[in-house]
């Protein structure tokens, strides 16, 4: 398994359940690392679907949003699906204001996101 510094990953079949280790996703080099580590899940580890669980993430800015858009495109290009979950209210407001809530499939809880992939826990 790859040496990961920014995320933890649990595998559920071809689904990667990703959690973030940073409370704030702001520093450009950290955002790059987060992106690289998630891209590796698709390209190297051959996961098809991804859940990003934002539990514990307190802050992110537009640079992180741009990276998420790139991830979404990459997952879709590989015929997979990206879902986000457990966003705190302030971060959800950012998705709503920017209308990115229309681009991303956002679920309230990790259980909801898993269920949307047909995984019952």
């Amino acid at each position: 398994m790859a040496d990961r510094r920014r995320i933890t990953v649990s595998a559920v079949g071809d689904l990667a359940l990703v959690r973030f280790l940073d409370r704030k996703i702001v520093d450009p080099s950290n955002i790059e690392e987060v992106g690289d580590e998630i891209f590796q899940l698709l390209e190297k580890d051959k996961f098809k679907n991804v859940i990003l669980n934002f539990d514990g993430v307190e802050f992110l800015g537009s640079a992180a949003l741009n990276k998420l858009i790139m991830m979404d495109k990459k997952v879709k290009a590989a015929a997979g699906k990206l879902r986000l979950c457990a966003l705190r209210a302030e971060i959800m407001e950012v998705f709503t204001i920017t209308k990115l809530s229309r681009v991303f499939d956002i679920k309230k809880t990790e259980a909801d996101a898993l269920k949307a992939f047909g995984v019952d826990i």
């Binding site: 800015g61 537009s62 858009i69 950012v94 204001i97 920017t98 209308k99 681009v103």
Partner: peptide
């Protein structure tokens, strides 16, 4: 306008728009 449908996935203008909103 980053909230227009054709710009939703573009990386430009979102930060400035968020400042204005918040």
């Amino acid at each position: 306008d980053p909230t227009e449908d054709e710009n939703l996935e573009s990386p430009h203008g979102r930060g400035v728009m968020l400042i204005k909103q918040m």
